[in-house]
Design a binder for these strands. Structure first.
Lengths: 201, 201
DNA sequence: GACTTTATCATCCATCCGTATGGTTGACAG
DNA sequence: CTGTCAACCATACGGATGGATGATAAAGTC
């Protein structure tokens, strides 16, 4: 076709993407109950009606968001290097994409309607096994359970999202700043490296 | 009077306490935006009117709750024993009173309207100083910043609240169960003790 | 030009908070 | 014993908000 794709007034894909992005921000900021469809539409620069049109309302929009998130988020952790670096990677991922992290925590807090996701459970089990091998390689002491360690590492990597008040009070840094992100990633990496040290002895 | 004071049908203090308790549960479960005043009243076994009567509406009730929480929660950590035990204490506190922990995280996630609390900041600074002394005593390596460590410890102690899905998938335990609480507290205590070991060398 | 897709506008309807109405009943002082 | 006040309850209404819907216009397609 002679249609140059650069500028169309009508572009359903672009519109849907805008709505999803706006929804991510709004849901992350206020949670599902607190989010306002009006606000999402305004943020996306789009008519409110289109949310029902494309996603079947607020509920459907939220679900579309979480499924998209699962597909994007599944490949964020590279298990190539050391354990410390992996956790530092968690921290940086949380810092760069706070909205996704927040969304996950909203879900955890309001988990009554949320059914357990088998794919997620599978990922977690794989990570636990990976940690178990790391333990055999001497990266952390043998009396620590890989499952508990995974939970601890993952959780503490999200401090900037979970306890922004605490971060501000303790570190005197903006939890959303890259400055804090880098500082905290570095600190956690050191902490975990120390676990490897004690294992050698 | 032959009236024993043990059982009164009319007791404003008891009523207010019931409302606060019900509000704690409701707000913890659904957040401020998701909580329903009707539900709180029903849970408290009390007429909806009384919420306005005593607390001036939903907003006032929430504020009353947070102030009560701050006064109760400030003395939950004993700094008598080792660092590992302190963190284990955090974990147990979170396990026993999940609602308070959830409330704190709701607040952190929706922090736009929440003004920073000076008393809280003061507590945190005191804890950081306490950690600094612990570092001098050799309880954790010198290249770790007490502020970052405080954030990390406090955050990872709340795993059962923040990532219940993760706990279920990784540990195959109910995050709210005492079984998980004990297991996780023990694991974190071990982890932190290892930090002291590596410091000696 | 007919037809489909995409988008808009105005409205509709449910929900929810606050509050008014209008009362009942303990508690307690005198 | 009795009057008075505080503590409570049942119902319901007003007003605001917010999410959904129906009719319709504009853009794109053939």
């Amino acid at each position: 076709m002679r249609r140059a794709p650069e500028e169309k007034q009508r572009d359903p894909e672009r519109t849907k993407a805008r709505i999803l992005q706006a929804a991510l921000e709004e849901f992350a900021a206020k949670g599902f109950a607190g989010a306002r469809v009006n606000e999402i539409a305004a943020r996306a620069g789009v008519n409110k009606q289109l949310i029902s049109y494309y996603f079947g309302g607020k509920e459907g929009l939220f679900q579309a968001l979480t499924t998209r998130w699962q597909s994007e988020e599944s490949a964020f952790a590279d298990r190539s290097s050391s354990l410390g670096r992996l956790v530092a990677g968690y921290v940086r991922a949380n810092a760069e994409r706070r909205d996704f992290g927040k969304l996950m925590i909203w879900q955890g807090l309001t988990e009554d309607t949320v059914p357990p996701d088998p794919a997620f459970a599978e990922d977690v089990r794989r990570d636990v096994e990976w940690l178990r091998r790391r333990r055999q390689a001497g990266e952390f002491p043998a009396d620590l359970d890989p499952a508990a360690l995974l939970v601890a590492l993952f959780t503490m990597a999200s401090a900037g999202i979970v306890y922004p008040q605490l971060v501000r009070a303790a570190c005197d840094l903006d939890p959303a700043s890259t400055e804090f992100g880098e500082y905290y990633a570095e600190q956690l990496e050191k902490l975990i490296e120390h676990l490897a040290e004690v294992t050698d002895s």
